[in-house]
């Protein structure tokens, strides 16, 4: 005991207590400064942008240009469509797969589970060329389907693993009770298990949406003028003939805002899902 106190004494209490705040403060700065910069720049006129000054006359011109005189609204729609459909697909199959992996008693279950997650370990770049050939052959290049398939397959292993751990938390006796009470396996799954893992389903869906929403590489390779998502369109604003930083920044905010809003709305849900712990019975 005395020994431990002596070690504790090496770092003064005040420093020890302050340290987390300092570290987190630095991290917050690191994260927030670019965002603040982006927000401020989006409100500046072209001439003001290169000035490192906070004194300027704010304007919404950039946003007007983004929303009414560019293709951004259409790309935004593409992003929403592709992200939500691919998340739905991944979560649907992820829930089924996670349930099977959690409950079944088959041999080699651990190996199978590892193999599933290992497919996610390869970097996106590795999958791009084979997928590109595949989509070319199937005439899917430039379609929504290409992006939805790419995102779904990339998110699925992750969704399976997440859902599996949520199902693991739920005592098997709850679904057994439902089976004895007269439910079929599917009914037991739908009526007793799915409601219980709903926070987990939500958390998984959010993460899948965020992945698809933020993706650049897949979208860049597999989409065309009509189906491209908003990160691709943002990148294309940085063209050969001069960059209008105001518009780029405004587009950046348009990409960011829905995710921030989404995150705020589902924050508690997300925390509940990710830290579900034992289901109270």
């Amino acid at each position: 005991m005395s020994e431990r106190q002596a070690t504790d004494g090496l770092v003064p209490r005040r420093v020890r207590e302050a340290l987390p705040y300092v570290v987190l403060g630095l991290y917050a700065l690191w994260t927030l400064v670019p965002l603040a910069w982006m927000s401020v720049s989006a409100l500046k006129r072209r001439g003001d942008i290169i000035q490192l000054s906070f004194v300027f006359e704010p304007t919404l011109k950039n946003f007007r240009l983004v929303f009414f005189e560019s293709g951004v609204p259409g790309f935004l729609f593409n992003s929403v469509l592709v992200a939500s459909v691919s998340a739905l697909v991944a979560v649907f199959f992820g829930t089924l797969g996670g349930y099977a992996l959690s409950r079944s008693d088959m041999r080699g279950k651990k190996h199978l589970a590892f193999w599933i997650i290992s497919t996610r370990m390869a970097p996106i770049a590795v999958a791009i060329i084979p997928l590109f050939f595949l989509f070319t052959r199937l005439n899917l290049l430039g379609t929504y389907a290409a992006l939805i398939i790419a995102y779904s397959t990339f998110n699925l292993p992750f969704a399976i693993w997440m859902m599996r751990s949520f199902f693991d938390e739920i005592p098997e006796s709850i679904e057994e009770a439902a089976l004895v009470d007269g439910a079929t396996r599917w009914q037991a799954f739908r009526k007793t298990l799915v409601p219980l893992v709903a926070p987990g389903i939500g958390a998984t869906a959010i993460i899948c949406v965020v992945f698809a929403w933020n993706d650049f590489l897949f979208a860049f390779m597999f989409s065309n003028q009509d189906t491209q998502t908003i990160p691709v369109s943002a990148a294309q604003q940085i063209g050969q003939e001069g960059i209008d930083w105001g518009i780029v920044m405004a587009t950046g905010l348009v990409i960011l805002a829905p995710m921030v809003a989404f995150g705020m709305i589902v924050r508690e849900y997300l925390v509940e899902g990710l830290t579900m712990g034992a289901v109270k019975q």
Partner: peptide
């Protein structure tokens, strides 16, 4: 059946 942990449906 009555289970050891009661297995009530929590939701």
């Amino acid at each position: 059946m009555v289970f050891q942990n009661y297995a009530l449906y929590p939701h």
